[in-house]
């Protein structure tokens, strides 16, 4: 039986849950802890928190929020945004994160992936890749919510992340993000076929049909969902029914 995780993605800025379109034009949604609890109780398999401005301002201030959520929500949490060192990871895990998602700092210094994986295990080391479809074919790796080019190719970077000890990849395609028009299945399929570690698709789920497509056309291990849940276009129960219809395991709640 196929097993695909439904992951509620919560982008956070200054203790607010926010949501943008193509990683721009952010709007306030509400209190992240309230939403996290609601999603956990309604069948989300995991939570993914990203501090969207952390690396821009060189800070990491999710600690308090992570602690608050972890004391009342008992499902796994991945936390990302502004993680630059082993010490940052120690802090986040100590206040209840189960995994950390690395992005900008890892693209600048890939040895950070190895350092974190050696210390805390591959299972705690997630590499978050922001991908954009290039003009001349191929996909490029971006950072800081699609603001900056890294000059890296998505497939090469995914392979390097795995080789360096990442236990999971969260792949966000910026050109589909926040639009609800479906995932970019082409790059998700390529990355999921390339690496042996789990790949989580992110950016674009708007209908249950998009989840079916992801299952049928790719080997993705997880589907991250943000705006469709935050703006209540879809309920987790809708997505869980889809999983069930596609012969996937669905956790009882």
């Amino acid at each position: 039986m196929r097993n695909l995780r439904l992951i509620a993605r919560l982008d956070v800025k200054m203790n607010w849950l926010i949501k943008g379109v193509q990683m721009e034009g952010w709007r306030k949604v509400g209190d992240p802890a309230t939403y996290a609890k609601f999603y956990a109780e309604n069948g989300a398999d995991e939570l993914l928190f990203i501090d969207v401005v952390a690396s821009l301002y060189d800070r990491n201030n999710l600690k308090e929020m992570v602690e608050k959520v972890a004391s009342q929500v008992f499902i796994p949490m991945t936390v990302g945004g502004g993680i630059r060192s082993v010490a940052d990871v120690t802090n986040l895990l100590a206040c209840g994160a189960d995994k950390v998602a690395l992005n900008t700092a890892a693209t600048r210094d890939p040895s950070l992936i190895t350092a974190i994986s050696d210390r805390f295990g591959a299972q705690a080391t997630v590499v978050s890749i922001e991908a954009i479809r290039g003009d001349s074919g191929g996909w490029q790796v971006m950072t800081d919510n699609g603001r900056n080019h890294t000059g890296r190719d998505v497939l090469q970077w995914a392979r390097e992340a795995e080789d360096r000890g990442a236990g999971e990849i969260v792949l966000t395609t910026i050109h589909t993000e926040g639009l609800g028009g479906g995932y970019d299945l082409e790059i998700i399929e390529k990355v999921a076929d390339l690496v042996a570690i789990p790949v989580v698709a992110c950016g674009g789920l708007g209908t249950t049909a998009h989840l079916s497509e992801l299952l049928q056309k790719t080997r993705a291990s997880g589907a991250a969902i943000a705006q469709a849940l935050h703006w209540e276009k879809l309920q987790l129960s809708d997505l869980r029914s889809t999983l069930s219809n596609e012969n996937c395991f669905v956790r009882p709640i």
């Binding site: 196929r2 097993n3 398999d45 591959a122 299972q123 570690i197 789990p198 291990s221």
Partner: peptide, 9 residues
């Protein structure tokens, strides 16, 4: 469709 680490419910 199996990937390792095995992560999930």
């Amino acid at each position: 469709s199996l990937q390792v680490p095995v992560i999930g419910w």
